Amino acid sequence: MSPTVAVVGGGISGLAACYYLSRGPRPPKMLLLEASDRLGGWLQSTRTPDGAVFEHGPRGIRPGGVVGADILHMVTELGLEGDVLPVPGDHPASRNRFLYVGGALHKLPSGLWALLRPVPPFSRALLWSGVQDLLSPAGTEPDETVHAFAQRRFGREVADVAVDSLCRGVFAGDCRALSTRSCFPALFQAERRHRSVLLGLALGS
């Protein structure tokens, strides 16, 4: 008798799990459980009348490494190559990043000058977030959520705006539920070894 596998959640992870289960030599019966009325989870786009596209979750694929190769292989198997839009690193879309916060579109700060003065959507210069990291003691917990880690090191605003958007875009997940040790091991180790994330990264931790 073929087993029945229940997959909880119809987001990208649940859909990928179903896909790979179906590709096995003896695919089981599958039951996909999704609480909402749509599939995709954090994967969702909003298109405005003038053609702009706002991504609520992941916005691209990083093709490097084993994970990137697996994703591109799945894209090929699904016949979606024609929907992939390669973006070179020097393209304006790569250099200019925007966040939609508080009903307005904001370009993310870049360059030294942007760190020295308040740039929306941030209410204070990001330099002070760096100072907070350099002066704060190292954490003692064996692990914590990405949001808690970022708030403790860089302040609540950075955690709420920048880190939350980053986790949605990279992991298609909630930074208040994701593990720092699993998702950002380099940052976790930098703090543990050098007390400061920025100092640890600068020293190559």
Rank of each mutant, 00 (worst) to 15 (best):
T76Y: 12
N96W: 03
H147N: 05
V87E: 13
S196W: 04
E141I: 00
F171A: 15
L112F: 12
G169E: 13
A186D: 15
R152W: 01
H106T: 04
L166P: 07
P121V: 03
R181S: 10
V119N: 14
L198N: 10
V163C: 09
V84P: 05
A177V: 10
F98D: 11
D83R: 05
E81W: 04
V87M: 13
V87L: 13
P92I: 01
P120I: 01
A162M: 14
P185I: 01
K107F: 07
C167I: 00
Y100L: 15
D90S: 08
P120E: 15
R124S: 12
L126M: 09
G173C: 10
F149W: 01
K107L: 15
G155D: 11
T145L: 02
G103L: 04
G82I: 02
L178I: 04
V84Y: 07
S182L: 12
D160R: 05
A93H: 09
D174E: 06
C175D: 15
I71T: 08
C175I: 06
V161S: 11
L108I: 02
L99P: 01
S136L: 08
F154W: 07
E141C: 00
S179G: 03
N96S: 10
R153L: 01
L126V: 04
L108D: 11
L187H: 06
T140G: 14
A162H: 07
R156M: 12
A104T: 02
Y100T: 04
L127T: 01
R156D: 15
A125I: 01
I71C: 12
R153H: 02
D143Q: 00
R153W: 00
R176W: 04
V119E: 15
A150M: 02
G169M: 09
S182E: 12
S182D: 12
G155C: 08
H194F: 11
L116H: 06
D164C: 10
A150E: 03
P121K: 07
T180M: 12
G103K: 01
Q151L: 02
L115I: 04
L115C: 11
L187Q: 04
C167L: 07
V197D: 10
